[in-house]
Structure formats: C-alpha cells, structure tokens
Design a protein around this nucleic acid. Structure first.
Lengths: 110, 110
DNA sequence: TTTTAATATTGCAATATTACGATAAATGAT
DNA sequence: ATCATTTATCGTAATATTGCAATATTAAAA
C-alpha cells in the first residue's frame, strides 16, 4: 500500500496528473520559466541559474521531459532543451475550460 | 538531503508549485472534475464516486483545501466542498501567459 | 441523552521523491 | 590518442506521499 491507484482513473485524468505533478515543484517551475524567457537553452545555463547541483538539475530535466513538458535535442557537445508547446496548450485549454465552466454556473454553495 | 529547497525560489514559484502539485494526482484531478460537474458537493458523494476509502478521500480533500484549490463550509452534519475560482483563475492566466509567450517567439531550436 | 450518520484524525507500512557526491558516457579540441 | 568539458546515470540517505484500518469528532435525530 502506498502506491497511487492510477488504474482506477481515466487516461486523461492520469495524463493531466502526470503533467501537473511534473510541473508541481519549484525547481521545475523555475526551469520552465527560464526556458520560456531565453532562446538558447543549454543545460549548463540552467545549472548556473538554479541553486541546485548539476545532477539534481539533470534529474529535474529528465522528469520534465518524461512528462512531455519539454523536449531536447543534441547540439554538439551540449543539449538544447525547450518547452513543448503542445503540453502548454493542453494545460491552457484544460484550465480555460475549467474557468469557463465555473463562470457559467454560479456555484454559491460555499 | 531530500527536502525540497523552497527557500531558494520565489514566492510566486513556490505558490504555483504548491497548487500544481496538489492538482497533480489522478484522484485529486477526479475530485476537481467531479466538483466542477455537480452543484451539490458533499464529501459523502465524493467518497461514493471514487475507488478509494473514506479516509483517503478526506486526506485528498484536505490537501486540495490546503493548496487553496477548494473551499469548504459546514452544512449541518455534512461538509460542502467546492472549487475556489480564484485558484483556477490563477492557473488559467499562468498557462495562458505561457502559451502566448511561446507563440510570440518561435523557438525552433529543438 | 443515546443513537445514528458523516467527516476528520491517527498510526503505520509501502512507495515515491528529492538532493547530491561519485562516476560514467559523449563530444570537441589539441 | 589524450584531455577538457558537458550532460547523464548510479547509489544512497533524508524526506514526503499514498492508502487504509481503527478510532475520534461532530452534529442531527430519536
């Protein structure tokens, strides 16, 4: 016991949870924001921006990539990471839908 | 070692991470979606909807409330939970900004 | 007041995450 | 080939999360 019961939820719910969980760490929020603000996006730069050791940053990048939030391509000696727009679009439309639905019904029960 | 280094990140980044982390679990995604779809929102209903025991659901509700994603009010013998629109608005505008910024620059480096 | 129903808390075992030092792998330069 | 640089992986300790049975709390109902 202690393992998340993913099998009981829909694929969409699990997919959304995976992305949000990956995004739900301050270091990874910072990485995503950094990737949004720069054009060049090499791991070394990110390590210098963050108060974390290189292996830790590498691991965070791995998780972001695994969740589909970023993509990377080999750029000679370095690796170029950048945000995967498709994931951001998914998140944006998810929360836009949520917000719109909440506006339509005035749930004043609380 | 092992504890998240929140002190090295901005308050905004930590706040965003807290909300996203709370949202980043399939059971809690399911709870949020359920709360969006119904008008009445009593804890007992949620327990019946989910494949989890009552204490587990209660704990998830507690986390969602702690992160500011839902709010609850005492309704006699039961407790009425519903989504806190302010949190959804924050999330929506965060990802809308992200998406818009990505569209403006065509980051074709990956 | 006792009973009933609903939600919360406690305690604990299983699992997952976080962080980093040490080390490996890969590429470019000499 | 050797070296320097950059990123990834391994191993491990500390911490956090997950889930549930058992129990406590709370408030309406009888």
């Amino acid at each position: 016991m202690g393992a998340t019961k993913t099998e009981h939820f829909t694929d969409k719910q699990n997919a959304m949870a995976t992305m949000l969980k990956a995004f739900g760490h301050p270091a990874r929020v910072a990485i995503m924001e950094y990737l949004m603000n720069v054009d060049a996006c090499i791991c070394g730069d990110i390590v210098n921006e963050l108060p974390l050791a290189q292996p830790t940053v590498s691991q965070h990048l791995k998780e972001l990539k695994h969740a589909g939030l970023i993509k990377g391509s080999i750029e000679g000696n370095a690796i170029c990471y950048c945000i995967d727009e498709r994931a951001i679009d998914l998140l944006q439309s998810y929360f836009t839908n949520l917000a719109n639905n909440l506006n339509h019904k005035n749930n004043s029960c609380c």
